[in-house]
């Protein structure tokens, strides 16, 4: 039977044979139906965690339950609940897209007659049906990513784990994949996502954990985490021009150019107040944008890293 927690991890540790301690006691819970972000810099332990959940990496200590099924003594039931899209392309590039998805259905015990319908549905949803007879090596990078998602979903898993699914995918396809993932989440599939695109996590996920150096350093609702930010910086584009940064009570303002200002808005301050003060000085704002991705700002602060690299490997 599947419980309320899609995933429950207790005191998970992992030390690799070369002595690297990738995980130093992870505790994590993901509710059924959640869209959950697992973030962290390269080498933080995200991929190791996912590897252990999907039984591709042996843990050192700890307990993992997937929908109540323990990986220690009910591993096959736990595995049946999971679909995984790994970080690296891992398919037989000489097989057709159709065969890749059909075979995966077979590994989960779906007879070919049913698997054919599932495969068609998945390939159509991920806009790959027209390429079904092509060998996977002929697909673009974005198509290969979508094919891996189709493969992971063909057995209708309750928990979908995506390890950087949109890495190297262009913006248009990335946004269409976001729409698709939102849709299957709304249909009841629990999703755990790791990504370097923090905008992606902020857009899609309701809950978030940030892992750094093998430990969870933050785990809360996305909205609660973002509220912890003390200030945000907005860039204002002006209709008229100004010679110097205006003095606005309570706000720190910097002149970027004669038609552009940067304003720091602190926690508890209102943007309405800011606009009132600008109005009083006849400064008309034509548009504004947030200077930094809010989550990115928090991420850097928590992980004490200066950059959020998108390359390199992860433990």
């Amino acid at each position: 039977m599947c419980g309320m927690k899609a995933l429950a991890i207790n005191s998970l540790t992992k030390t690799y044979p070369n002595g690297i301690q990738a995980l130093r006691g992870i505790d994590l819970e993901v509710e059924e139906g959640d869209f959950f972000a697992l973030l962290g810099p390269n080498g933080a332990g995200k991929t190791t965690t996912i590897g252990i959940i999907t039984s591709l990496v042996n843990k050192t200590h700890g307990d993992i339950r997937v929908f109540g099924h323990s990986l220690d003594n009910d591993i096959y039931a736990a595995k049946a609940c999971i679909g995984v899209v790994p970080q690296e392309i891992n398919m037989n590039l000489y097989e057709s897209c159709y065969d890749i998805v059909m075979n995966q259905a077979g590994y989960y015990g779906i007879p070919r007659s049913q698997a054919a319908a599932h495969t068609e549905a998945m390939l159509r949803q991920l806009q790959l049906w027209d390429r079904r007879d092509d060998q996977a090596r002929g697909l673009s990078g974005g198509m290969k990513r979508r094919l891996m998602i189709a493969r992971a979903l063909v057995h209708s898993p309750k928990l979908l784990i995506l390890d950087e699914p949109t890495a190297g995918v262009d913006i248009e396809i990335r946004r269409s994949m976001w729409g698709f993932l939102k849709e299957i989440n709304e249909q009841g599939t629990t999703i755990i996502l790791t990504t370097h695109y923090l905008e992606e996590a902020e857009t899609l996920c309701r809950n978030i954990a940030i892992i750094d150096d093998g430990k969870i350093v933050e785990n809360d609702r996305m909205s609660a985490i973002l509220r912890k930010l003390h200030q945000e910086v907005f860039v204002l584009n002006l209709e008229n021009t100004v010679d110097a940064a205006p003095v606005l009570a309570g706000f720190k303002v910097r002149l970027v150019s004669e038609s552009e200002l940067e304003v720091q808005v602190g926690k508890g301050q209102s943007i309405n107040d800011l606009f009132s003060l600008l109005n009083e000085r006849n400064i008309i704002v034509s548009s504004l944008r947030n200077k930094t991705n809010r989550l990115e700002e928090l991420f850097i602060r928590l992980t004490q890293r200066k950059d959020v690299s998108t390359d390199g490997s992860d433990h």
């Binding site: 999907t54 039984s55 591709l56 096959y76 039931a77 595995k79 049946a80 999971i82 995984v84 790994p86 891992n90 398919m91 037989n92 075979n103 995966q104 590994y107 989960y108 015990g109 493969r151």
Partner: peptide, 9 residues
């Protein structure tokens, strides 16, 4: 792609 089988039940 051996992982396809290793992650399956």
């Amino acid at each position: 792609y051996l992982q396809e089988m290793l992650v399956s039940p």
